[in-house]
Design a protein around this nucleic acid. Structure first.
Lengths: 186, 186
DNA sequence: TCGGTATCGATACCGCCGGTATCGAAATAT
DNA sequence: ATATTTCGATACCGGCGGTATCGATACCGA
């Protein structure tokens, strides 16, 4: 048979498993200092890792933050829910994640960079948004453009509130957001 | 009577009226290069002005961009409209402004900086958001927290779309946004 | 046991950016 | 003419994203 080139471990010293440490240090640093002052040097120091190690794994600060967000959000638990419950759970899940320390500023920061950096925008769109878009398309049996609209409304609203007030949206307003979107969904 | 200290012209060389030139150059530069690469040096050069002149009038890059946005948005025309029309006109006005060259990236950029800079957040909230909030509170006869919620939804959605796609929201989706909010308003 | 290979931390470096300081020239009021 | 203030120009500082280099280290295969 042909050799299994994909699973063959490459030669040389293997990478140490510090991704989780780096992600944790990234959110911690962004939470404490904000996106701009969370420099790669500081993140590396907080993770107990050299800056070169970070740049060996992620091509830019924006890509690092995006990967960190993908790791932070993770999969949505949506088992055994009907249409309305799925939508409501997804929105509340997003609200809770954005409220976690550092996630909001990290999101907004990578967002700004993406607005004038097509390559970063591509990473952000495909790595972070698309997985949720596809899951919701399937779970809700809705066309792509409608799911994209719902994501814009939910995430945009939550991020705008955090940008203006510096704090995550209060529960009562999240309830209103859920109710508003559910009224359009059905 | 007490002298009119406010209207008395101060001594010395008066300021040259270059604010409009600076604002125009700011949006032009942000549109061409994005928020991060739109440096104060480049903006000053594009406006035909020295960098020191800019820092004499605005305390930071974020404050400059915010002032530029306040100037770009300006007053909403809302005369002779009923409740639903006022809300719809305000949303479409925001969508149109965010679609103008440079406005979207400038907004997102100052947004990111504001998320971890309380003083800039205060400027952004009071100078840009509050005027519209007050006008809408009066025109719609709605409490503050509801108007703030509507602003979060409308502006957040429009900005999120632009951040993910790099382009302003299409007209059909703006229609859907208006319809969704109107359904909650009444 | 011994090369080959790739990652590791440490360090130095580059270009650029936000912001400040300084200076002589120019513009106003008195 | 003098006082006052802004103007453009220039130089400067600290810090940041990103790159290059280097010896040390960890794994693999022979």
């Amino acid at each position: 048979m042909a050799r299994d080139t994909a699973s063959a471990r490459p030669p040389g010293r293997p990478r140490s498993s510090v991704d989780a440490e780096v992600f944790s240090a990234t959110l911690r640093t962004v939470h404490e200092l904000g996106y701009t002052r969370a420099t790669v040097d500081r993140i590396a120091a907080a993770a107990g890792v050299a800056k070169t190690t970070i740049y060996r794994r992620w091509p830019s600060k924006g890509a690092l933050i995006t990967a960190c967000l993908v790791d932070a959000f993770g999969p949505i638990p949506l088992e055994g829910l009907d249409r309305s419950e799925i939508m409501a759970a997804a929105i509340r899940y997003g609200a809770a994640k954005i409220g976690e320390p550092g996630v909001g500023p990290a999101f907004a920061g990578v967002f700004t960079d993406a607005m004038s950096d097509p390559s970063l925008r591509h990473i952000l769109s495909t790595r972070l948004q698309d997985p949720y878009r596809l899951i919701l398309q399937e779970a809700l049996n809705e066309p792509e453009h409608r799911v994209l609209f719902f994501i814009d409304v939910a995430m945009g609203t939550l991020l705008h509130r955090m940008g203006m007030t510096g704090e995550p949206m209060a529960e009562a307003d999240v309830d209103a957001l859920v109710e508003m979107i559910l009224r359009v969904l059905d």
